[in-house]
Nucleic acid binder design. Structure first.
Length: 511
RNA sequence: UCCUCAGUAGCUCAGUUGGUUAGAGCAUCUGACUGUUAAUCAGAGGGUCGUAGGUUCGAGUCCUACCUGAGGAGCCA
């Protein structure tokens, strides 16, 4: 058996269809190559594409005796005298379909061409399985081989791979149990996010990826330029003349869509952003990426108390949806990755979140009979160890901490009447610590102007942000959720690089 | 960016106070087995010990630099 290499898309498709292994008549040399003129591209496409009802997850729902075709990638194949077993998976669910092929209807020689990683279609009858391990299995009558996978060089083995190794084969890792489950959960969580907001009348706003305002001060930004770095235009002072650049000024990849989100909240009332975000920090930890996805709702006519309630409802909704739709994957994580995943998620869904102020939190921490690596003192930001103590040991459930000292929070957070604290909130959950950060925004023009000045930020850069406070200003609030941190929470995965398809970190942008 | 640890077969690892021909399991290949479930059993092949220097009669092992990865810190989502 050979694989035809071709470069034209239509030829590739035809060669995919040409390796039909006809098992029913025991003549394994029958590999017909259909005349290219026999079929149009569209007809070929409709023949190979999976439709609802065709996925392996759907096949499990069909009655015993049904004639079905299963398509997917071989996870393992086992040969015995007279019979072979294939575990087939198309990514639609965690459970593999077991395909059974009798050597009286198919030659062992031909079956041994098929190995882990090969892509095949199998047609046959769905039957009750006589053995332990699965309720039903597919009794294969004919197998179509789309693409073989050389067993001697295929890198994704059946066992023994570390997360670090799988990261190096990111083009193959979605086919593994763990990563198939991770990305199904990621998809389900993403859908739940949209569903939650859409059901509540929030509009999804596509805030820009490229921005010219570097004034937020939320960390280092990636520059975007079309200038020739070897020979950039210079100003008279000798610096780079950004006026000559593509956008006529220095521009960057966004670090947050919040400020633009506020514009739309003050026009469409309730909105959310959901998209990629970039930080050029040289931070190399299991919790940081240079490119990650963030969800940022922004609500008009909303104070911090409402903000807090939305955040609680939001987290519970995502978890509930994933538990309802991807319990097969969650059970795998609970069994193989972290045996506290399910109990933690159930705790979050079934508890009313606690609520304390920063001042109360500091009081609790000072009175705690613990030796902190970082001493606690009013005015100093809470460390991870403090956050986890409060949520895991004091409350034993999620806690929202509000009203932080103004010095340790961003300029746009609304000043409290005490003049010392701002209407900020952090949602802390067991095992992770902070998962959501948010605030009520400063809607009073004069107060915001003073705040920007006090923090030494340039007023001009915020001209439009300040105008929102001059024309039809209203109390409003919002928060941010890092999608990957949520996926880590849902799956128990320990490294953020393993919950995003293609991680970007300092020194690494492969694939 | 700083601190710590690691890098030996395709993968996961062992390798003693420096010692002559570097091992295992899995994977691969060959064979056996009529229902397997990380199949099992028998046999075979497979290594520039991260890279470059250095110390030594002799380096996988000791030293230096660099590269890559992981954990911790800072920053945060």
């Amino acid at each position: 058996m050979l694989i035809v290499q071709s470069s034209q898309p239509t030829e590739i498709l035809i060669s995919i269809l040409s390796y039909t292994l006809t098992l029913a008549n025991s003549d394994f040399s029958l590999f017909s190559r259909p005349d290219k003129n026999d079929s149009t591209f569209n007809e070929l496409l409709s023949n190979v594409m999976l439709h609802p009802g065709d996925y392996i997850k759907d096949i499990f729902q069909k009655p015993v005796g049904a004639e079905v075709t299963a398509r997917g990638w071989v996870k393992t194949i086992r040969h015995s005298k007279g019979i072979s077993f294939i575990q087939l998976n198309d990514g639609s669910g965690f459970t593999d379909l077991q395909v059974v092929v009798d050597h009286q209807t198919a030659s062992e020689e031909a079956l041994k061409e098929i190995s882990t990683g090969a892509c095949i279609s199998v047609t046959g009858e769905l039957v009750e399985s006589p053995a332990q391990g699965q309720a039903v299995e597919l009794k294969g009558n004919s197998i179509e081989v789309h693409g073989l996978a050389d067993a001697a060089t295929y890198k994704l083995q059946k066992k023994g791979a570390t997360m670090e190794f799988l990261r190096e084969i990111a083009h193959l890792r979605p086919r593994s149990n763990t990563f198939g489950a991770v990305f199904r959960v990621r998809n389900a969580a993403s859908y739940a996010i949209h569903k939650f907001f859409q059901e509540r009348g929030f509009a999804w706003v596509h805030t820009p990826i490229i921005t010219a305002s570097d004034a937020e001060g939320a960390g280092a930004m990636f520059g975007v330029t079309t200038l020739d770095l070897m020979n950039p235009p210079k100003t008279q002072e000798g610096g780079i003349d950004w006026a000559e650049d593509f956008f006529g000024k220095r521009s960057f990849l966004t670090v947050s869509g919040q400020l633009e989100g506020e514009i739309f909240a003050e026009a469409m009332s309730n909105i959310y952003t959901f998209g990629p975000t970039f930080r050029a920090e040289n931070s190399n930890t299991p919790r940081h990426l240079a490119e990650f996805w963030m969800v940022e709702p922004e609500m008009a006519f909303c104070d911090l108390d409402d903000d807090r309630r939305v955040a609680e409802e939001f987290l519970k909704y995502i978890i509930t949806h994933v538990m309802d739709t991807r319990m097969d994957d969650l059970e795998f994580f609970n069994k193989r990755i972290d045996d506290t995943v399910l109990s933690t998620l159930e705790t979050v869904v079934n508890s009313d979140f606690g609520h304390i102020t920063y001042t109360e939190a500091v009081d609790i921490l000072e009175k705690a009979n613990k030796s902190w690596e970082f001493p606690v003192k009013w005015g100093v930001d809470l460390q991870s160890e403090h956050e986890r103590y409060i949520t895991e040991e004091v409350f034993k459930k999620p806690v929202v901490v509000t009203d932080y000292p103004k010095e340790i929070k961003a300029f746009y957070m609304r000043m409290n009447d005490d003049g010392k604290t701002v209407r900020a909130m952090d949602v802390l959950v067991p095992r992770i610590g902070e998962i959501i950060g948010g605030s009520q925004r400063e809607e009073r023009h004069a107060v915001l102007v003073e705040k920007i000045k006090a923090m030494g930020l340039p007023l001009e850069a915020y001209w439009w942000y300040l105008e929102l406070r001059k024309y039809g200003s209203v109390p409003h609030a919002g928060f941010g959720l890092g999608l990957e941190r949520m996926i880590m929470y849902l799956t128990g995965m320990k490294n953020i690089r393993d919950v995003i398809p293609f991680p970007r970190t300092p020194g690494s942008a492969e694939f």
